[in-house]
Design a binder for these strands. Sequence first.
DNA 1: TATGAATGAGGGTTCATTCAT
DNA 2: TATGAATGAACCCTCATTCAT
Lengths: 216, 216, 216, 216
Amino acid sequence: MRVLEATNHTGNGGQSAAVRLRDPAGKRDALLLAATRLFARQGYEATRTAQIAARAGCSEGLIHRYFGSKKGLLLALIKSRVSKEVVELTDQLPIAPTLEAEVLQLVEWEVRNMWNDQDFLRVIISRGLVEPHVGKVLSQAGLSRHVPAFVQRLKHFKQRHPVSDEEMEGLAQSIKTIGLVFGFMRPVLLQQDRRVARKMATTIAKIIGRGVSERR
Amino acid sequence: MRVLEATNHTGNGGQSAAVRLRDPAGKRDALLLAATRLFARQGYEATRTAQIAARAGCSEGLIHRYFGSKKGLLLALIKSRVSKEVVELTDQLPIAPTLEAEVLQLVEWEVRNMWNDQDFLRVIISRGLVEPHVGKVLSQAGLSRHVPAFVQRLKHFKQRHPVSDEEMEGLAQSIKTIGLVFGFMRPVLLQQDRRVARKMATTIAKIIGRGVSERR
Amino acid sequence: MRVLEATNHTGNGGQSAAVRLRDPAGKRDALLLAATRLFARQGYEATRTAQIAARAGCSEGLIHRYFGSKKGLLLALIKSRVSKEVVELTDQLPIAPTLEAEVLQLVEWEVRNMWNDQDFLRVIISRGLVEPHVGKVLSQAGLSRHVPAFVQRLKHFKQRHPVSDEEMEGLAQSIKTIGLVFGFMRPVLLQQDRRVARKMATTIAKIIGRGVSERR
Amino acid sequence: MRVLEATNHTGNGGQSAAVRLRDPAGKRDALLLAATRLFARQGYEATRTAQIAARAGCSEGLIHRYFGSKKGLLLALIKSRVSKEVVELTDQLPIAPTLEAEVLQLVEWEVRNMWNDQDFLRVIISRGLVEPHVGKVLSQAGLSRHVPAFVQRLKHFKQRHPVSDEEMEGLAQSIKTIGLVFGFMRPVLLQQDRRVARKMATTIAKIIGRGVSERR
DNA sequence: TATGAATGAGGGTTCATTCAT
DNA sequence: TATGAATGAACCCTCATTCAT
């Protein structure tokens, strides 16, 4: 019972389905995809290489040919993810009219992102607790991603709401923090209802928004 | 790469190693302690029962006599921790004069607590990602602990700063959230400098404090 | 949940039941009894010393004090059985009027005996297959027991039915053989219906009886 | 007291031991063969999987790949034996001229067979005493095999020696019984001299033969 | 005498990795 | 290139035996 998650990556649509052998890049990707899912749900150690191969629809030996070892597969998986292009924030998210509204929409965006990235976060958080080397990449790929972009956007409101650089950084970090906790930790780890978590995130976002916009 | 961790952790000073001690409760505790430490640093799967026994200064067989299995040891460890008495908050932390100051001191207290509980958090977070059953206890033992007490304390300021119940809850949750991220996730998982993290927590605490105390 | 098969062996009926400690001979017997039953039903290797102690209502350590080791217990068990007094055959079984009737009643008696001795036979047969030393005692305690007595009884009919010594011996051995197979092997090992087996034994006994009494 | 039993039993003569042979069916058979021998001589429990693998000339892991577990190996061994084709009796054993001679030759044939099957009988008898499920197969594979064929052959003499169906069945069963006791139990279990046992079987066979052929 | 806490050698089994095909 | 049969190191666990109490 093989689950073929590997779809055509070569784009040679006309090829017979039965002769889909010889597709190195496709198998590589299939292995990465299968490993991400399985490592995320069962943990790295509890996942068997045989399982990964089965899910990817190829043989165990290929894991070693392509990635050298099970650990090599894990590292490749993380690397491939980290090097993924950062989506251009402004392209998909216009700046809000007020600072409070901006904080709110950024928090909501983050919460959504963290939820969508849950498989990767599961892998990297559980491994990061054990392998310091892996832990460090979480800064880049998880909790610092977009922070400069956030700061950039928040600066638009500096005129009306003069905020120190320190507070600006704090604000951006809060957004990431809330995203992590209410988009991932609570719904995924604690299995809290997702809507409840999102609601709470919104409430907090409002408090924070008020905290930076209101000045004595 | 096997780390052999000592043999005498029971603190029975100059006693010869060959002596066969008879101390059920002591050995039980020693095993729980050793397991907590090792599970925290290497992960549950990567920790060998032989290692735990060595660190606890007793034989491997005892793990199975007392806890049935390696997994039983993990569960006992979690249970014993969860059932630990919650420290009476007010006893050690007088209520601050202003709401802002209270928020600040609670955040600092939380950050400190999370840091001190890091071994337990490491274990329960990495296991919780894999075993849903374990994940659920984190709600009680980690992220909801003290929340009612926080709310209680914050109500003292209701007169001067009228805050809705929803916001009150959000406020308490923020404190836990900041504690988790800046007391544990950043310094432990991301290996960020502890003082930097604490500083950032303070900054955010101030923003939040202002957010609830200032009203339009 | 201890099964106390050990009843009072000291005969000091007046003793309080609660103070039944200190009864060496009783515990020894209880251990032998428990071991026989368990070795018989589960096999020697699969039986745990803890199980034996529990069934005998005493501690594991006692097995080693009394018998030195688990194997010592097995050997003691066999020895105690072998040295048991052979019941005087004639006391309970009057000689039949004819040779055929005598063969028949001896076969029936043997079949019954083998069935009653099944626990001991189970132990000694399964161990005998593995330990040559143990195997040898089966000759004495199982398949040769009473053979001389059988021959003695059958000689009463020599006058009317002149049978060679060789055939006399063969006749006695047949009786043992039928007893073993239809009193033990078939009902116990093959789980054949006991009455069916007994019936078959009777049929064969008659053929044999005829074989020695009829002469050309 | 560990007995190290060789390494090369596969009969692949001068081949280097380091060569990694690829021969699934061959290894499977080698494991079954090695296991039969070892289980027979030392008992199932006392036989180590490492020992079996060594004797079969392959690795321990293969036992689990092919048979799932040590117990699976035992069951496979029994099954493969039971399903073996029954040799056509008439092909190798012409019917004797008289009933007495026929009984005699069948007994001798059975005694020989039981002796030759001793390894399988050792395994199945000692296991059958412990596992009822296994015990049942002995009926088919041991003590009932050929019984119908015996009856068939004996019917040839019905004209001259009218024998009831019941006696016919008893006669066939006697032959199996004598075969088991004098071909296996006595020489193997009791270590009685084989020739002595065979002689005794012959004597009894004659008595029985006379018992069915002579009529009043 | 009797207990049962403690031991530790050794077992069956798993699984990442290798390599003949 | 791809496979999966074969390996073997190392794990968790069992249990007869020892010994402090």
